[in-house]
């Protein structure tokens, strides 16, 4: 047990080393684009205000009436913040596929060396899985830190008559995007991460199916993911199947969904174990 845990740590560290350049680029881009947004958006607003004041000889109150107040929420609601989040999601989704295929599609088929290691192949599987989640949480943490840096910058650029005093947490809680990615609401946070967890397990299973059976594996993988999707979505159609919209309460539907997601996740894990141990040959 201690030995396999040590191997898992070593392999995770190895995978993290390989991810690091890509991850640090994503983290850097997030910080950089966010920072540009923290400076550009309020500067542009103040520019418009100043232009209005000089052109119309207006007072600050009149300018506020014309342009409204500026708050940190205004910045969090722009593409300067939303863009890097979307980039991070798509980047890590891409890397979730790449993390497996890179072993086969190199100059040297590194997969052979990895799979021949005298450790359980599932340790390799788990190391890749953990690394993706470390990547996800690193980006979430970067976004959090970025907001803490951005708040004083925006407050400093906007002159007080035009600044709407919304606290940082108020600005964050008002943005629905953060409701899903930040632990603002424990229920939502667990659901989003739980769904992401299962999606990644299914994705890994599909990749291993393809690696095991080639083109047939792709078809098998698509069929498997469609069945998994249908199983998870089935409770949402129960009211239509039973001709009654009120038979199940929302909380009960959520519990059923959780059970089904767990089932799909566990099933994917066992299938992956079977495939990686028995079907992928070196």
């Amino acid at each position: 047990m201690k030995n396999s845990l040590h191997t898992l740590l070593k392999l995770t560290n190895f995978e993290l080393e390989r991810l690091s350049k890509f991850l640090f680029t994503l983290m850097g881009l997030t910080l950089l684009i966010n920072l540009a947004g923290y400076i550009y958006t309020p500067t542009q607003y103040m520019g418009r205000i100043n232009e209005y004041l000089t052109q119309n000889s207006a007072t600050a109150d009149e300018a506020v009436k014309a342009f409204g107040h500026f708050s940190f929420y205004t910045v969090t609601n722009t593409l300067w913040i939303g863009g890097p989040i979307a980039l991070g999601i798509s980047g890590l989704l891409f890397y979730s596929v790449f993390i497996w295929y890179r072993e086969w599609f190199g100059k040297n088929t590194f997969a052979y060396r990895l799979l021949m290691l005298p450790v359980s192949r599932m340790t390799l599987y788990f190391s890749k899985f953990i690394v993706i989640f470390i990547g996800i949480f690193s980006l979430i943490a970067t976004q959090m830190v970025s907001l803490f840096i951005g708040y004083p910058i925006v407050s400093a650029i906007i002159e007080s008559p035009y600044f709407r005093e919304l606290s940082l947490i108020e600005s964050i809680q008002m943005n629905p995007l953060f409701l899903f990615f930040f632990p603002l609401d424990f229920g939502y946070f667990v659901i989003v991460n739980g769904v992401g967890f299962v999606v990644l397990l299914v994705l890994f299973t599909v990749i291993l199916m393809e690696r095991s059976f080639g083109v047939k594996g792709i078809v098998l993988g698509i069929v498997y993911s469609l069945i998994a999707l249908a199983a998870v979505l089935l409770p949402l159609f129960l009211p239509d199947l039973l001709n009654n919209r009120y038979l199940l309460y929302g909380s009960e539907l959520m519990i059923i969904e959780t059970i089904l997601l767990t089932t799909v996740g566990v099933l994917s894990l066992f299938m992956s174990r079977h495939l990686i141990n028995k079907k992928i040959t070196v």
Partner: peptide, 21 residues
């Protein structure tokens, strides 16, 4: 070092955010 730094970064950020919230 990289792994430990990243894990510490994640832990510190999430804990800090939790306390702030």
């Amino acid at each position: 070092i990289k792994s430990i730094s990243l894990l510490l970064f994640i832990t510190a950020s999430l804990t800090g955010f939790g306390l702030y919230k």
